[in-house]
Design a protein around this nucleic acid. Structure first.
Length: 464
RNA sequence: GGCGGAGUAGCAAAGUGGUUAUGCAGCGGAUUGCAAAUCCGUCUACGCCGGUUCGAUUCCGACCUCCGCCUCCA
């Protein structure tokens, strides 16, 4: 039995999909006008792990993640660059897919774009206008009439009258109420636009998710997810639009990932304190980044720092050292004690830190078995690898991972390292321990750690 | 101000009304020429103040501090 924390109820609930064994999940994706940063990576990885686990538990998951390719920032950026918005978004969609693949994030089952779903969007707006839930203002925009939707604020406990008090005045005089939000925006000169019953224009931000999620998953679906900054206003507005349009409940379970912080502040584009995925991946192995992102619970805030990435690298190295030199067994049954524990803690709102703790226990057992009962090691190794796979970890060759970085160090250093290792080997054979230790110190000064193996060979790795 | 989240040992991070979280670091031991890796053992905890309880880090209340949302942001 899966338990999931639901933002709507603010409690952990037993998860019962609408259709037994099947899950419809929609996650808000990226607005593609720039490279993805670690905050985006967190959402991608969190829901990737969630989907992997649900599938491991036998659910058939239909995972939809949209791409927002119509947006003010996109148009603005395209104009600055003197290119069409389509060229710009195509470039950043490719970049996003590259980042995703690099992080071993499995692709969603569908990735609808706003620009490919204009007719669905227009249809939903028309329904809302017909039902009196929305209106065309005299500036050509179409707005959702928030005050007509009685349960507005149900997700984030907002009260309309309090929102009205805090509303900025005079921003948009055509709105009947300051809390109303745009479903359709009248075209501005030079901007991409589409014909509509209300004139040339383009969709507002929130409506695309309502229209596309309904198209892909139906009026009511199981799980809707997204980043920490989306509950209000975006998801609140989605609920209002969709429920006003269909008259049915929109989403059963809302899931939101926690923020990535830098120096105790949220990483965000507006603060400019973000690290792009591709830059981080230049310094750290993709699994290290994944490990960092799931070493805290998905709803907790995490701090991006060099130290925390190094801790992740060390932790992952421990797993790979345990797997090193062991054949991976053929099969492993769910009766495996650690595996059962692993699934149990993951069933409890995807508790990845606890799941990693189980894996450390398994790694310890594996280390012991390698010494004392090697026949059993392959099965335990298989168990560990299977758990890792559920998290998108431990998929590399252990030796390659442990030595990762060694092939990238520049040629000259590598020659030096190999020369020093040869020198040390000769000294050890001559039992000249002083000279041997001197060589090891020289290696250490280059962040190279050596390890002598029982067969007399010496391996090395970079460790800083 | 409203809404929501959080304060756990040197660091990171789970969890629980009474029994070892876990990883890194430290300390002692095994192993090793010495190391590394591994194994065994071990020291540092639950923001503050009350309450409930035989017993609270865990439940309840107050307080302090921090963070997020309330404007585009994952």
């Amino acid at each position: 039995m899966l338990n999931i924390y639901n933002t709507l109820s603010k409690t952990k609930e037993e998860f019962h999909p609408i259709e037994a064994g099947k899950v419809g999940m929609y996650v808000c994706g990226i607005t593609v006008y720039d490279y993805c940063h670690i905050g985006h990576a967190r959402v991608m990885v969190a829901f990737d792990v969630i989907v992997r686990h649900m599938r491991a538990r036998g659910y058939e998951v239909n995972y939809i993640r949209n791409i927002t390719d119509i947006d003010d920032k996109i148009f603005q950026r395209a104009e600055e660059n003197g290119e069409s918005y389509k060229v710009l978004t195509a470039r950043f969609i490719d970049a996003m897919h590259e980042d995703e693949r690099a992080l071993h994030v499995l692709p969603p089952d569908a990735e609808p774009c706003a620009s490919d779903n204009i007719s669905e969007i227009l249809e939903m707006i028309a329904t809302l206008v017909e039902k009196g839930a929305a209106y065309r203002a005299d500036n050509g925009d179409v707005y959702f009439a928030v005050e007509n939707f009685e349960s507005y604020g149900q997700l984030t406990n907002k009260k309309v009258d309090e929102l009205l008090v805090g509303a900025r005045v005079g921003v948009e005089v055509s709105k009947r109420s300051p809390v109303d939000f745009a479903l359709w925006k009248a075209a501005k000169p030079g901007e991409a636009s589409w014909p509509s019953p209300w004139g040339e224009g383009r969709p507002g931000w929130h409506i695309e998710c309502s229209a596309m999620s309904t198209k892909c998953l139906g009026n009511t679906f199981d799980i809707h997810g997204g980043g920490p900054d989306l509950p209000f206003p975006h998801h609140e507005n989605e609920i209002a639009q969709s429920e006003a349009a269909t008259g049915q409940k929109y989403v059963n379970t809302w899931m939101h990932a926690g923020a990535v912080r830098v120096d105790n502040e949220k990483m965000s584009k507006s603060l400019g304190n973000f690290f792009t995925i591709r830059d981080v991946l230049k310094k750290y192995h993709p699994e290290v980044v994944r490990y960092f992102l799931i070493s805290s619970h998905y709803r907790s805030p995490i701090s991006y720092s060099e130290d925390n990435l190094k801790i992740a690298a060390a932790a992952l190295r421990r797993f790979y050292i345990a797997l090193r030199g062991v054949e991976i067994g053929e099969s492993t049954s769910i009766d495996g004690q650690d595996l059962a524990r692993f699934y149990a803690v993951m069933d409890d709102d995807f508790n990845t830190p606890e799941a990693l703790a189980v894996m450390f226990d398994t790694a310890k057992s594996l280390n012991v078995l390698k010494d004392r009962n090697p026949n059993k090691a392959p099965d335990v190794a298989a168990e560990l690898k299977l758990m890792g796979a559920s998290l998108g970890l431990l998929q590399e060759d252990p030796e390659a991972f442990i030595q990762s970085g060694t092939e990238e160090i520049n040629g000259q250093l590598k020659e030096e390292v190999e020369a020093l290792i040869a020198q040390r080997k000769a000294a050890r054979e001559a039992k000249d321990w002083g000279l041997a230790d001197q060589a090891r110190d020289a290696l250490k000064a280059r962040n190279v750690v050596v390890e002598d193996r029982p067969d007399g060979s010496t391996i090395w790795r970079i460790e800083d």
